[in-house]
């Protein structure tokens, strides 16, 4: 569950926290597109460094590192698989860095954007409120489910369950006593929340009013402009087959 630590909102007052979620999403999307489109180690490291700067601005580096620790098994798996496939350490390192760069795009975005603002921005870009609400709720409940998982894990460990012992298959099977209660509790909570929303008139009016409205500031427009330029550059390089040193040459 440590891996999820870097994907939950941390309240803050930094520049990146105060930026408009739409602008942040565009930038996050641009970073993700570049990290997926180009497989050059130096360029991927540059993308990662830029994102680390954003995380540092939001004072979220510790959370990102904690999350990275949780992702170590997956990174190791990618590294090992790549070594086996290509017999190249550089290629293995490149793909591992690419994985970290891609996951980081969502990490800094979710660490610095409150679920409320996220829902609001989705509504303001025209998504139906039911869908944006469902999306917001899904993100809001990531830490709740993470906490639930830890509680169930503790309860089963107290009854002698040792996940770290046994063969690979045995270890996978040992997750059943943890996953089943979490799954059941999540479904039960879903019904309870649906009831609680219904008794508070959710969906009674087709068009809901809003308490807050997001307004783009000049700095948000600037971030959006940079993101759009990066995206256009990525698309151009992909379609034209042009070679640029450091990026794809």
């Amino acid at each position: 569950m440590m891996a999820l630590e870097g994907f939950r909102f941390r309240r803050g007052e930094s520049f990146i926290h105060r930026s408009d979620p739409r602008a942040k999403f565009l930038l996050s999307f641009a970073f993700m597109a570049m990290a997926i489109a180009f497989v050059k180690l130096k360029f991927l490291l540059l993308i990662l460094a830029l994102q680390l700067a954003i995380l540092a601005n939001g004072r979220c580096l510790k959370d990102w590192i904690r999350s990275l620790k949780g992702l170590v098994p997956l990174i190791a798996l990618i590294f090992a698989a790549q070594v086996l496939v290509s017999w190249s350490w550089v290629s293995a390192l490149t793909y591992s860095v690419r994985f970290v760069a891609v996951t980081s795009t969502m990490s800094w975005f979710l660490l610095t954007t409150s679920p409320d603002d996220l829902g609001l921005s989705l509504e303001q870009v025209g998504l139906p409120s039911d869908i944006s609400f469902a999306f917001t709720m899904a993100i809001r409940f990531v830490p709740v489910i993470s906490y639930e998982f830890q509680s169930v894990y503790d309860a089963q460990r107290s009854r002698g369950l040792e996940l770290e012992k046994g063969s690979f298959v045995q270890r996978i099977r040992k997750y059943v006593p943890i996953i089943v209660p979490v799954f059941i509790e999540t479904i039960r909570r879903t019904y309870e929340i649906a009831d609680a929303m219904e008794v508070r008139a959710f969906g009674a009016k087709p068009k809901r009013t809003r308490l807050n409205v997001l307004v783009m500031r000049p700095s948000d427009w600037a971030i959006s402009l940079v993101a759009v330029l990066l995206l256009l550059g990525t698309v151009f390089l992909q379609l034209s087959n042009a070679k640029v040193p450091w990026i794809n040459a």
């Binding site: 460990r157 107290s158 009854r159 089943v180």
Partner: peptide
């Protein structure tokens, strides 16, 4: 935890947390 739990058992606040 397993070694200690053998001597010191624990019952959690929400019984549902352990039922599967």
């Amino acid at each position: 935890v397993a070694q200690i739990s053998r001597k010191v058992g624990m019952v959690f606040q929400k019984p549902e947390n352990q039922f599967f």
